[in-house]
């Protein structure tokens, strides 16, 4: 039943796992854009920016993930349909399930990533920024050459945790109809009436995803901190 043959669900489950990987990764990237914007608005010192950043972070950290995903999915589809009708497209314009799912995961992840980036930015020694200005770097170059590499270094452990969270939030987006791992397991469980086998298989695949991506984050952390090692060594 869980095999790879004609009647087997093996391929479907693996395809579901890959979809989970893809949607979580896209969600993490969307979250990194949102998160760095919020971190920037909080660090900028503008009162309005900081208020908006705070409101966003506390709202999406305070609401159940399931609820956020509902609203993102139905809200974005309703919005798109309304806009479509304004420009003369008849009927329903749906947001693709993948986009809605990734957006849902990303909106939540962004709220947490903002804190990670903010903490990492504050950990940069002020002298480094002063030195960069002193040698005449303009803002974009300083951001690319000085800030981003160091923020990433400090942020990697935190991002590794948030990656785990994104992976598991993606199990809640089956409401959008996307056939990721959780939905595949649920559909398989319902169709064959063998839920235990399917949830165990799902468990195994989630753990495999975790294991593989954990190794990746470990390697990234090692690489990002190689300069620090030399300093202490």
């Amino acid at each position: 039943m869980l095999g790879f043959g004609d009647k087997g669900w093996g391929l479907a489950l693996i395809a579901g796992a890959l979809m989970t990987l893809a949607v979580s990764l896209t969600g993490l990237l969307i979250g990194s854009v949102l998160g760095s914007l919020i971190a920037w608005s909080k660090l900028s010192g503008h009162k309005v920016g900081a208020t908006i950043g705070d409101a966003y972070a506390s709202l999406f950290r305070g609401l159940p993930e399931l609820l956020v995903i509902y609203f993102v999915y139905f809200g974005s589809s309703a919005l798109l349909t309304a806009v479509g009708n304004l420009v003369g497209i008849e009927g329903f314009v749906g947001v693709p399930a993948f986009a809605a799912g990734a957006l849902g995961v990303g909106v939540i992840s962004g709220a947490y990533q903002a804190e990670v980036y903010r903490g990492a930015y504050l950990a940069i020694a002020p002298g480094e920024l002063e030195a960069a200005r002193a040698v005449g770097m303009h803002r974009l170059l300083m951001f690319r050459r000085i800030i981003v590499p160091q923020v990433l270094r400090y942020a990697i452990p935190g991002l590794g945790n948030l990656w785990q969270v994104a992976l598991k939030d993606s199990s809640l987006i089956s409401v959008t109809g996307l056939t990721e791992l959780m939905r595949t397991a649920q559909v398989g469980a319902g169709s064959t009436r063998q839920p235990f086998a399917f949830y165990l298989a799902g468990l195994g695949l989630y753990l495999t995803l975790t294991f593989v991506t954990d190794r990746f984050f470990e390697a990234a952390e090692k690489r990002a901190t190689r300069g620090l090692k030399r300093m202490h060594g």
Binding site: L172, M182, Y199, Y206, L207, L209, T210, D214
Partner: peptide
Amino acid sequence: IFRGSPLLI
């Protein structure tokens, strides 16, 4: 195991 899999499962 408990960090790596969804609570629902």
